[in-house]
Computed example of a mutant assay.
Amino acid sequence: MGDRERRTVFVTVGTTCFDALVKAVDSPQVKEALLEKGYTDLIIQMGRGTYVPSKVSGDGTLQVDYFTFSPSIADYIRDASLVISHAGSGSIFETLRHGKPLIVVVNEDLMDNHQSELAEELATRKHLFCASPQTLGETIQEMDIETLNPYVPGDAKPVVSLINKFFGFPDD
């Protein structure tokens, strides 16, 4: 078993409750899609959520583990081959900074959703993939990580103007 390369998928909801994302990741369709892409382990940070994912893993299935909070999710992000995240800007930029492939899952239950605009803009620029809980399985099946553009943190200008646009500040 030890000779198999581990390819971990790390799922994070930050400090929020986003059961729809945890449920989606726990679904047979999503697990199947991840397996087909060659991922071996699934680690879910479930935040304040109440939905508990199933840990059952047999042969040919993902090894699943989960926890609520960790003082530093940076380690999990660093070790991951793929990150599936809620649309919080902290989680997004942390993942992009580590140069990890990222699927941002937008929480459609949030009424005031600046977050989805940020995620969609970064998806348009091909820094990440964007999904909803309903389309996550499809997104995993169809994604081609090779098509992603590395995010270069040094170039803050586009991001700054994006943030200014959200908050209605003039762009200098």
Rank of each mutant, 00 (worst) to 15 (best):
D144R: 11
P153Q: 10
V13T: 05
E36D: 07
Q63M: 09
G137A: 15
C17R: 15
N149T: 07
Q134R: 13
V159H: 12
S91M: 04
Y151T: 02
S91G: 14
A156F: 07
F67N: 08
I140Q: 06
G14E: 03
S161K: 07
G90H: 08
F18P: 06
T50L: 06
S57I: 02
E146H: 13
I145Y: 09
V105T: 08
T16W: 03
T95V: 14
I163Q: 09
S54C: 04
T147L: 06
V106S: 08
D109K: 14
D144L: 00
V13G: 07
L82T: 05
K165L: 01
M111H: 01
Q63C: 04
S161H: 11
S27R: 10
V9P: 06
G60C: 09
A156I: 13
V22L: 03
P53M: 02
V160P: 00
F166H: 11
T147Y: 00
E138F: 00
T8E: 13
T15C: 10
L82R: 05
F10P: 06
G14C: 05
D59P: 06
T139V: 15
T8I: 13
S72P: 01
Q115I: 08
R4Y: 01
Q63S: 11
D172H: 14
E36G: 00
S91Q: 04
S57H: 11
T95C: 06
S132D: 00
S132Q: 10
V152I: 12
A123E: 13
L62K: 08
A87H: 01
E142F: 09
E94H: 02
E121M: 09
S54F: 03
I92E: 13
E146P: 01
T139F: 05
P71D: 15
V64A: 03
I145W: 12
V104K: 06
D144W: 00
G2K: 12
G137P: 08
K157A: 13
L62Q: 08
I84K: 04
T135M: 05
Q134M: 02
S27C: 09
Q115R: 04
S27V: 05
P170E: 07
H114W: 03
G99S: 07
Y66A: 12
P53Q: 07
L35K: 14
V52C: 01
S72Y: 06
L42C: 05
V152H: 15
V83A: 02
E108T: 14
A33C: 05
A74C: 00
G49Q: 03
A156E: 15
Y151F: 15
D79I: 00
E142W: 04
L122S: 10
L128S: 05
D79V: 00
I44K: 02
K157F: 10
T15F: 09
L162R: 11
G154W: 04
G14D: 06
E146F: 11
L136E: 07
S132L: 10
L102T: 05
L62N: 09
T61L: 11
